[in-house]
């Protein structure tokens, strides 16, 4: 997906020549690449959403203004939503494919573990994005998450760290906002780079 020039940075990231087997569609079904593509689309649309979305009490109002009043706001939000759903699905299918072609086995187990962590992070990001809507339904979803944390010993502290102080909306979106737009995507992006580097190092079917 990157540009290939002989002197460019991308040209050095990937090898000049690849194994013939890597060309076969059923070797990977492009699922890992699709996940990364989704991540790129999510990053771009997510940054655009940052310009108008307001966490906290204004969350629902600002989102509904963004969605229905601002020019192209609904399109950007819609792209963000669908890319997120497609990312969860393609990451999952990518995992199934990796187990199917036995690519998780030792020598590559570290990358498998990284991949599982990436999958979990993707699902949590999808959930936390839903919470940012700040409506009644997402408030209920936040309450369930909060209650699950509170049921742990010492979980009240964790619940406060992740979900913030409960408000009239069943939970402020401010803390989730910090997690959703900065911390989780940051960790996800970093781990992805590690994941890709390991593919090249371990010699996956497609050299990155």
């Amino acid at each position: 997906m990157g540009k290939q020039g002989n002197n460019s940075f991308m040209g050095h990231i990937r090898p000049r020549q690849i194994m013939t087997g890597a060309l076969r569609l059923r070797a990977t079904f492009c699922l890992g690449g699709f996940s990364f593509l989704a991540f790129l689309v999510l990053t771009i649309t997510g940054v655009l959403l940052l310009f108008f979305y307001q966490p906290g009490v204004e969350a629902f109002v600002s989102l509904s203004e963004l969605n229905s009043v601002l020019p192209y706001g609904g399109v950007i939000r819609s792209l963000h939503f669908w890319a997120a759903q497609m990312m969860v699905i393609s990451v999952f299918l990518h995992m199934v494919r990796v187990v199917w072609s036995k690519a998780y086995r030792p020598l590559r187990e570290l990358n498998w573990i990284t991949g599982v962590v990436l999958f979990v992070l993707t699902v949590i990001l999808d959930y936390s994005g839903y919470l940012l809507r700040g409506g009644q339904e997402s408030g209920a979803a936040a309450t369930i998450g909060q209650a699950l944390f509170t049921s742990l010993p010492g979980g009240q502290a964790l619940a406060t760290i992740f979900f913030g102080q409960p408000s009239s909306f069943n939970g402020s979106t401010l803390n989730m906002y910090a997690w959703h737009v900065f911390i989780l995507p940051g960790v996800l992006g970093f781990l992805q780079m590690f994941h890709f580097w390991r593919i090249r190092r371990d010699g996956g079917v497609r050299p990155l």
């Binding site: 629902f60 989102l63 509904s64 969605n67 609904g74 399109v75 939000r77 819609s78 792209l79 939503f81 669908w82 759903q85 969860v88 699902v123 999808d126 959930y127 839903y130 809507r133 700040g134 409506g135 009644q136 339904e137 997402s138 408030g139 209920a140 979803a141 369930i144 009239s168 909306f169």
Partner: peptide, 25 residues
Amino acid sequence: TAGVEVPLDTSPKAAAVSLSKAPWV
């Protein structure tokens, strides 16, 4: 994006919803 509209939730100021569906994940 063009074909399926992404809904907004119910406004927190509206009447309480009777059934709340979790996100599919």
